Amino acid sequence: MIAWRAGAAYPPAGPFVPVAGGRLATLQAGPERNARGTVVLIHGASANAADPMEGVGRLLAARGFRVIAFDRPGHGWSDRLGAATPAAQADRIAEALGSLDPGPVIVLGHSWGGAAALALALDHPERVSGLVLVAPVALPFPQRVALPWYWRLAAQPPVAWLLSRTLGPPLALYYLRGASAQAFRPQPPSEGYLERARVPLAVRPGALLSNVEDLIGLPAALERQSPRYGSLSVPVLIVSGDADPLVRIEAQAEPLAKRIPGARLLRLPGLGHMVPWVAGDRLAEAVADFLPEAASTR
């Protein structure tokens, strides 16, 4: 019933793009012709395409960009497609971009989506003209520190399947507002965030299970992916709040900027994790300023 109500309240709101084995859902905004450029948005954990689209995407569209936000595989209305790692999800997004044919794009990845954006640039460089990584999770971290024991237990296939279809949805729904407030710290949540970002879609069984798999598998995926960051040849802008309690700037953004040749770090004093919402105008301005640098790589 929880899943049905969430799906009925937030039905698909953009076109689907066929890929091998299924389809990816998108939200799209801005002009398709004579656009200043195309920006692809990749959301973080426990979210869907509406999160970055409503935070910063529509501000970019108002500035003349074509904006394409993807529901990552298994989230929102996208099929799971067996894609749990950043690299596997980047492969599906690259395939979808091949169908949409927007040319090389600026990829903006937030949080977990930063890892997927990096994988897209590493494995499909012909699709990417530049990266904007917002509060990115990109460097390895100790799994024992990042994820408590009950997450690891929940990730075991039989337990995860059972929890996602019994206790998981009502518990997730109960804690939804509090969890959103934690994500915004130290700022208060943006008005109407839960509805505008279509957050209740994340409490459905499939999305809950996908989210757990994504989080549990991320440390090992970053161990494999991060040694390649030095080979990136596209312009990279990293944007992070220095008061982010979830993805600390000194643990991720700062060392990441040193690993990627020519990467620039934009530090936002006093801001937390939800930069696309609490500083959407500043982020859209940074993307617009970044455009000439990205365009020169095409």
Rank of each mutant, 00 (worst) to 15 (best):
S111H: 05
P189L: 12
Q143K: 11
A207K: 00
F141R: 09
G178E: 06
G114F: 04
V137S: 11
L194W: 01
L108M: 11
P158W: 09
L209F: 04
A181E: 14
R204I: 08
A138Q: 08
A155Q: 09
P158A: 12
V137P: 01
S111Q: 03
L120Y: 00
P188W: 06
V134S: 13
L147M: 09
P140L: 06
D214V: 01
L147P: 03
L120W: 00
V159M: 08
E126C: 00
P169Q: 02
V145R: 14
A181D: 10
Q143E: 15
Y193S: 01
A155D: 14
W161S: 11
A116W: 00
W161Y: 15
P102G: 04
S129F: 07
L139R: 06
H110Q: 08
L176N: 04
R127I: 04
V107P: 05
A179M: 13
A146I: 09
G109E: 03
Q156H: 14
A160C: 14
D123N: 13
A121M: 01
E191R: 15
S210P: 05
P205C: 07
V134M: 05
P148H: 05
A138S: 15
Y174F: 14
A121C: 02
P170I: 09
P104D: 08
A138Y: 10
D101N: 12
G114V: 02
W149A: 13
